[in-house]
Structures are given as structure tokens and as C-alpha cells.
């Protein structure tokens, strides 16, 4: 991943960790292990805001930044839209909601058990 992408990721991690919106200064303070200029952090936060991942609000003279959604929400979106390849959102949603039903799962579990009984388990 390129450097800019890596920075975006690091900054999102910082924002997700924090319970409160943070100023640029506070975000920089969390990234002391990297030698980052104040303007770099601001630029990356700007990019993230433009992409819609970060929201900002004025607090006095400074801007405060917070993530637009929780990390879990984005992971869920990732998993859901993985099947949106075909653009058929409706089908994607029904498939996501419909897991293998109880009785079907039992049948599959039995089949799996029978298979792994036949030969020594290959699980490490």
C-alpha cells in the first residue's frame, strides 16, 4: 500500500480508538512514532473528510474530527457489498439475511462429520 493510504489507515485507527472527536493536534500527538508534519496530518484528514470517512465540526478556532461510522459498521458494509458485484442489491440482501437454516445446517454437519471420520483429520 502506498504511503498516503497507510497514513489514512493509521489516522482512522486513531480516530476509531478515541471516544471523542479530536483536533489535528491531538491526532498528531497519537502518531508520535512517525515524524509527521502538522500540515500532513491536516491534509490526510481533509482527504478522509472528502471521501466521507471523517466528519468535522468547529470547536472554537480549531476543527474537531470524528469517524463517520464505527469500524464495525464499515466491516459490515464491506462484507455486504462483497456480493454486490452484480449490482443486484436486493438479491445481495436476501442472501446475506438468509443463512443456512437449522435443519439444513444439521445435514451439512453430519456430512462433514462423516467426511472427517473417513480419514484422519487434517486440521492443524
Amino acid at each position: 500500500m502506498n504511503r498516503l493510504g497507510e497514513l489514512e489507515r493509521a489516522i482512522m485507527d486513531v480516530l476509531w480508538e478515541s471516544a471523542e472527536p479530536m483536533t489535528v493536534r491531538q491526532v498528531s500527538a497519537c502518531l508520535t512514532d512517525r515524524d509527521l508534519a502538522h500540515t500532513t496530518v491536516m491534509t490526510v484528514l481533509d482527504r478522509l473528510a472528502k471521501k466521507g470517512f471523517v466528519r468535522r465540526e468547529r470547536a472554537g478556532r480549531a476543527w474537531r474530527y470524528r469517524p463517520a461510522a464505527t469500524r464495525e459498521a464499515y466491516v459490515a458494509e464491506l462484507m455486504l457489498t462483497a456480493l454486490d458485484e452484480t449490482g443486484d442489491r436486493q438479491a445481495a440482501l436476501t442472501r446475506f439475511a438468509r443463512s443456512v437454516s437449522g435443519s439444513e445446517a444439521d445435514v451439512l454437519r453430519e456430512a462433514l462429520a462423516a467426511l472427517t471420520r473417513e480419514a484422519p483429520s487434517s486440521r492443524t
Binding site: L83, E85, V100
Partner: peptide, 25 residues
């Protein structure tokens, strides 16, 4: 082939709930 078969069964039976099943999953 056995490994792929057991993988498919394991994910479906124990996958941990609604796992997305897309065209290329």
C-alpha cells in the same frame, strides 16, 4: 478435492451465522 469439500461444508455449517455468499465467494 476433499479439502475444498470439507472447507465448503465447514463454512456453511459452522460459519458463524449469515456469511455473505456472493457470486464469487
Amino acid at each position: 478435492a476433499r479439502e475444498l469439500a470439507t472447507a465448503l461444508l465447514r463454512v456453511a455449517a459452522y460459519g458463524g451465522g449469515p456469511a455473505p455468499a456472493g457470486a464469487l465467494a
